[in-house]
Nucleic acid binder design. Structure first.
Lengths: 115, 115
DNA sequence: CATTATACCTTTCAGTTCGAGGTATCAGGG
DNA sequence: CCCTGATACCTCGAACTGAAAGGTATAATG
């Protein structure tokens, strides 16, 4: 129950956030800008997307938070937990499978009778 | 006006349908199965997704329809129009850009200071 | 004659994402 | 000294999509 229709193309924001946190601890505002920059403006998730994702991830135990004040600026740094690492693996594989499947159709011309 | 939030990850069903029609004329029921088969069950769009997409595409002039009876079976065959071809190009490019951008983040480890 | 497969269709529901708005602090310009 | 803009956090409501289920009709099969 509950799990109804996780539309096959979703969870990309979650994936991106987890992936960024794999490298270093980051805070929300920083993540918003990192996504924008690292994708060359192609993907631009607003704070209204990122913050809720962070909160959900923390609630599920995938990340942990620690408030720290840096240069008079109060920030909440998030770090990936082991649970978050496996969630990241899971989402990455899902992403591969799906984009691969779509690619298969896009290339498709080959009238695959392949076994 | 109108254009609110076309969530950056959408329109994949439309893309798949257009792409399939690029090769040959097909009817709805056939498209549903083709997607399932060509993606190896990974992507499985129901009729409740495909038919509305077809109707929207026809309304927008991207495809044309012709009812034909084959072996006592009445089918509506759809064919790609020139407008549909450019729409397909457009969506394909968008798909590339987005998946590329996501991939960039996923690979990312490279601490890109690249210019 | 009933069930299955073909073939079409629509409506309802739920989840995600977006956008806009709201607070507070710090730095800099006028 | 104030006002603006950047930093940094947050939440709510609207909207769109896609999923599931249900509904009709015909042909073929047992």
């Amino acid at each position: 129950m509950a799990s109804t229709n996780p539309s096959f193309m979703n969870g990309v924001p979650e994936l991106l956030v987890l992936r960024l946190l794999r490298g270093r601890k980051m805070y929300g505002y920083e993540i918003v800008q990192a996504i924008r920059e690292e994708t060359g403006e192609v993907v631009s998730l607003g704070e209204g997307v990122v913050y809720p994702v962070l909160h959900a991830l923390e609630r599920s135990g995938a990340i942990t938070s620690a408030r720290r004040t840096v240069g008079g600026r109060s920030r909440i740094y998030y770090a990936l937990s082991p649970k978050g690492v496996s969630r990241l693996t899971e989402l990455t594989e899902l992403w591969s499978r799906i984009t691969g499947a779509v690619q298969q159709v896009l290339v498709g011309g080959g009238r695959a009778g392949l076994v």
